[in-house]
């Protein structure tokens, strides 16, 4: 564990708490892509199945339980509790175009051709693109509530912090995890546009609005 990874994980944790806070206080899931959230559940369930047979640490265990349960809870909030506030007509990104290629990639690129390892690779590839329906929705509506942008910023910061973590681990432990690193770089790159608007507008006190 190093500080980059710790702060990355805490940022991930914060992003979910911000999202829950947004939904609970506004009593609405407006502006949130159900597809992205459903993809995250898929990612967490596929990756954290090792919860049942591989003990890493209490930290690791608690985080996994939190990520799986909170992401399922968010789906419940969107589909049941605040269902009327979710508008599927603007959440139109075809998620199956993401899942299919990730299955194929996982079958080709994995560390061992076993079920858990292929599932792990799949979750890494899927996580790297899971934010696309959300970003697509943002692009389509051209604006976002400030709280939603804080959620995305925390999520992007988590990904960004994993990069110095890998550099640190390369020098301190001599390990490289090429699948995680390549997918992670792709994932972080997807946030570049968002961060540009976030830094130049939201953090200057303006509303998140994309140029027409």
């Amino acid at each position: 564990m190093n500080l980059f990874r710790l702060f990355g994980d805490l940022s991930h944790l914060a992003s979910i708490l911000i999202l829950l806070h947004k939904i609970q206080t506004t009593r609405s899931c407006r502006g949130i892509s159900f597809k992205t959230q459903a993809l995250y559940v898929t990612v967490f369930v596929a990756r954290y199945l090792d919860l049942f047979y591989d003990w890493v640490s209490l930290y690791n265990f608690s985080m996994k339980v939190f990520f799986i349960s909170s992401s399922i809870y968010i789906l419940y909030l969107m589909k049941v509790r605040f269902r009327p506030t979710h508008d599927p007509s603007i959440d139109t990104f075809r998620a199956e175009y993401l899942v299919g290629p990730c299955v194929v990639l996982a079958l080709i690129f994995n560390y061992k051709f076993t079920f858990p390892e292929v599932l792990w690779s799949f979750s890494i590839f899927l996580e790297s693109v899971a934010i696309l329906p959300q970003l697509f929705m943002l692009q389509r509506t051209g604006e976002a509530e400030t709280i939603t942008t804080h959620y995305l910023a925390a999520l992007g910061a988590y990904r960004a912090l994993y990069i110095p973590n890998w550099i640190y681990r390369y020098f301190s432990e001599g390990v490289v995890d090429p699948i995680a690193v390549i997918a992670g770089l792709v994932q972080t790159a997807l946030y570049v546009d968002f961060f540009y608007v976030y830094f130049t507008k939201v953090l200057q006190g303006q509303k998140f609005e994309l140029p027409a």
Binding site: H12, V175, D177
Partner: peptide, 10 residues
């Protein structure tokens, strides 16, 4: 081989 017997990152 990527150096870990298990995946220790989240």
């Amino acid at each position: 081989e990527h150096g870990h017997e298990h995946h220790d990152e989240l």
